[in-house]
Simulated scan of single mutants.
Amino acid sequence: MAAAPENVQIRVHSRRGVNTIHPVSVESPHPAAAASPAANYREVKHFKKWFPWLIPTFVVANVVMFIISMYVNNCPKNSISCVAGFLGRFSFQPFKENPLLGPSSSALGKMGALDVAKVVDKHQGWRLITCMWLHGGVFHLLANMLSLLVIGIRLEQEFGFVRIGLLYLISGLGGSLLSALFIQSNISVGASGALFGLLGAMLSELITNWTIYANKLAAFTTLVVIVAINLAVGILPHVDNFAHIGGFVSGFLLGFVFLIRPQFGWVNQRYAPISPAGYSSAASPAGYSSTSRAANPKFMAYQRILWLLSLILLVVGFTVGLVLLLRGVDLNDHCSWCHYLSCVPTSKWSCNTQPISCQAEQTGSQYTLTCSNSSKSRSYSLLNPTATQIQGLCAQLCR
């Protein structure tokens, strides 16, 4: 399994990141069909393999968006110093400002990062979607894209591009929505909400198609452990675990809706070889008549119940979440302990989420910046600096 996906928080001066056992496609003719030349065999399409093209397209789109972000960032023009300056306009922000080898927070904001103040006050709801296609740096991009290839291609092969594409996008929206309701003082970017949606869908697919798995307990245990490890990584600072949780829950529910499979009994009955007389040429097991075989349901009762309940929860959850967000509700005010789901403070790190800001004093070409959070102070010799340069120096000073 690839490295755990992470949604990275980039702090800015603001007003306010498995192996399962899938059924094998039934592609060879039934023995009775091979024995009888007159038998009519029909291909089982419910378990065919799809050619995966959408997930690789998503990967390319994310890489392209990162390149565009670096072009917009233009470090040599907007920063005092840059990493890998030989890249020119595509060089990276200083490590102290962005240790992931990427653009500045202001550049990500211009590209569509999730900024709750702009979503609520300026009605820029599209940021809930665009933030899924942005990444904080090279390391962030590589981790998420490797995970997407490992998880997504297998799912697209099994279920097709339509269902997996919708699952990816809706899960990403769910992750952005929960993140916006809890983290309102920083911007957030990354595809890991959608990635956790794919993990959640794998778990619900295992549950809803339980009867067709051979090693049920092993597959379930493996997947649960992988999900738990990925979510545990989210309690580290600068990682948006609310996006992980929101994406996972959305994907888990969507898996019951999109990834339901018909029962093998129904498939065998439907695609059994047909004799010229119009009757199934497959021999019925001892003690079972053709009438009892015809009674095989396409979906079990528990599959139908899970489908309906999940659909209701999804509609209600997204509706309530969007209403609360557009009203400017901060769920931290109603849940005093929920912030621990995204970051647990220890002696090694702090979970301070206050936005970064600095006071600037100018004396000729000398600028003295004082961090409002830590009272750190430093003087810089600058000639007509831009606001972006001052903001970058502030970010370096306060970290």
Rank of each mutant, 00 (worst) to 15 (best):
V18A: 15
V18L: 15
I21N: 11
H22K: 09
S28R: 08
S28G: 04
H30P: 04
S36T: 10
A39Y: 06
N40D: 13
E43P: 00
E43T: 04
H46C: 09
F47K: 04
F47W: 05
P52M: 03
T57V: 03
T57C: 00
V60E: 01
V60W: 00
V64M: 04
V64C: 07
M65E: 00
Y71A: 13
N74W: 06
C75I: 10
P76A: 01
I80Y: 09
S81G: 08
S81C: 11
S81L: 11
C82A: 12
V83W: 02
L87T: 00
P94L: 08
L100N: 10
P103R: 09
M111R: 02
L114D: 00
V116D: 03
A117G: 08
A117W: 07
R127F: 01
F139E: 12
H140T: 11
L142S: 03
L146E: 07
L146Q: 09
G152V: 09
L155P: 14
E156M: 11
F159V: 07
V162L: 14
L166Q: 06
G174N: 07
G175Q: 13
L178T: 14
A180H: 06
S185K: 08
N186T: 05
G190C: 12
G190R: 12
A191P: 13
A194T: 14
F196C: 14
G197L: 07
G200N: 14
M202H: 11
L203S: 11
L206E: 01
W210M: 13
W210P: 10
T211K: 08
T211S: 11
Y213D: 09
L217E: 05
A218F: 09
T222R: 10
V224F: 07
V225Q: 00
A228F: 14
I229Y: 10
N230D: 15
V233K: 10
G234L: 13
I235V: 14
P237C: 00
P237T: 04
N241F: 00
F242S: 02
H244C: 12
G247N: 15
V249K: 14
F256A: 12
V257E: 10
L259C: 07
I260T: 13
Q263A: 04
Q263M: 10
Q263V: 09
F264T: 13
G265R: 02
N268L: 12
N268S: 14
S280D: 02
A282G: 11
S284N: 14
P285N: 12
G287H: 06
S289E: 01
S290C: 00
A295T: 03
N296S: 12
P297W: 01
K298D: 02
F299E: 04
F299L: 12
A301W: 10
Y302F: 09
S310V: 13
L314K: 05
G321N: 04
L325G: 03
L325T: 03
R327M: 05
R327E: 00
D330R: 00
L341S: 12
S342E: 15
S342G: 15
S347C: 01
W349L: 02
W349K: 02
N352Y: 05
Q354W: 03
C358K: 04
T363A: 13
Y367D: 07
Y367M: 06
T368M: 01
S374E: 01
S377N: 01
L383G: 02
N384V: 04
T388V: 15
Q391N: 14
Q396I: 07
L397N: 03
R399Y: 03
